[in-house]
């Protein structure tokens, strides 16, 4: 009886336990407790929510370990934290703190424009953003144990999350119709490892859990993403930039569970107060869009 820690099975396993749940961005221990009380399946500990990173500009980095540790002490649910794309030392620091998941995130300013972190080298699991199947499988090839669609963080506009979820699902639907002899060329075309493409084709879905992220601001947004076929949702700025965070957080949790029940969705959507002030993605200049970070 020898115990094995840090295996891909246990990394992927935690993401499986988060399914059907909501992962919420929090910037203080108080936020974390509000999120936990509202039924969050996990929290993402960070200094600024994406909407503030957008508004304030500057270089966005890993959060202060002191803040992350305080949030870890405040709740019993899993705590995630963000490292910059390619910044493996930030990831090493987060691992040493014992965070439950690292988000190698385009929301922070990338540290490497060519290479992502070699996530196989870590005992803690990673989640990474993707806009299409090729990008998702490249990240899984590097060791990501969970994928989230990128969407466009900090906007409150769900349009990019929808685009990316539809794209990933559409790519998979197309793949499953291909005869086996065409799979190698398809792998080349999307720039993804052949073995993972074959595995995806056989499963008819990504080999790891796939959440939606980037622009989800209402219970209806969360249910929309669930009906499109994702396994759960991340809500960043959408909760704590709204008028009544506790109420909205609880409503989004309920909507994620009862995503197919329009009566319940109507009920939980009532009297939630002001949503976050959104920003239409198509009004944002290209150089301010963040989904294009990473490849």
């Amino acid at each position: 009886m020898t115990a094995e820690t840090g295996s891909f099975t246990v990394k992927k396993g935690l993401a499986q336990m988060l399914k059907g749940g909501v992962i919420m961005d929090v910037v203080t221990p108080e936020h974390a407790r509000i999120a936990e009380d509202a039924g969050a399946a996990a929290v993402m500990a960070l200094e600024r929510v994406p909407a503030d990173i957008r508004a304030q500009g500057g270089v966005a980095r890993m959060s202060d370990p002191e803040l992350i540790m305080k949030i870890m002490d405040a709740v019993t649910i899993p705590v995630m934290a963000k490292a910059r794309i390619g910044h493996f030392v930030e990831a090493q620091i987060l691992e040493s703190l014992g965070v439950d998941y690292v988000d190698e995130s385009e929301v922070l300013t990338p540290a490497d424009e060519e290479h992502h972190i070699n996530k196989h080298a870590f005992k803690i699991p990673f989640v990474c953003g993707a806009r299409n199947l090729g990008e998702a499988l490249r990240r899984i090839g590097e060791g990501a144990a969970m994928i989230r669609t990128k969407g466009e963080a900090g906007t409150g506009d769900v349009v990019e999350a929808v685009r990316h979820a539809r794209r990933v699902m559409g790519d998979i639907r197309h793949l499953t119709t291909l005869p086996e002899e065409e799979v190698m060329a398809f792998s080349k075309e999307i720039g993804a490892p052949y073995e993972l493409v074959m595995e995806t084709r056989q499963l008819g879905r990504l080999p790891v859990v796939n959440f939606a992220a980037g622009g989800i601001a209402t219970p209806a947004d969360a249910a929309l993403m669930m009906q499109l076929g994702v396994d759960g949702v991340f809500v960043g700025s959408g909760i704590f930039k709204s008028g009544d965070p506790a109420k909205r957080a609880a409503a989004i949790v309920k909507a994620t569970t009862h995503y197919q029940d329009a009566k319940i969705l109507a009920e939980v959507s009532r009297n939630l107060g002001e949503p976050m002030v959104g920003r239409q993605v198509n009004s944002i200049p290209d150089n301010e869009l963040i989904a294009g970070r990473g490849w």
């Binding site: 009886m1 820690t5 246990v10 899993p78 691992e95 439950d100 803690i124």
Partner: peptide, 16 residues
């Protein structure tokens, strides 16, 4: 006892 073995870094698999 919840989270009795620690955090995710302590998650494990074993033959029983």
């Amino acid at each position: 006892e919840r989270n009795a073995f620690g955090r995710q870094v302590d998650s494990f698999e074993i033959d029983l």
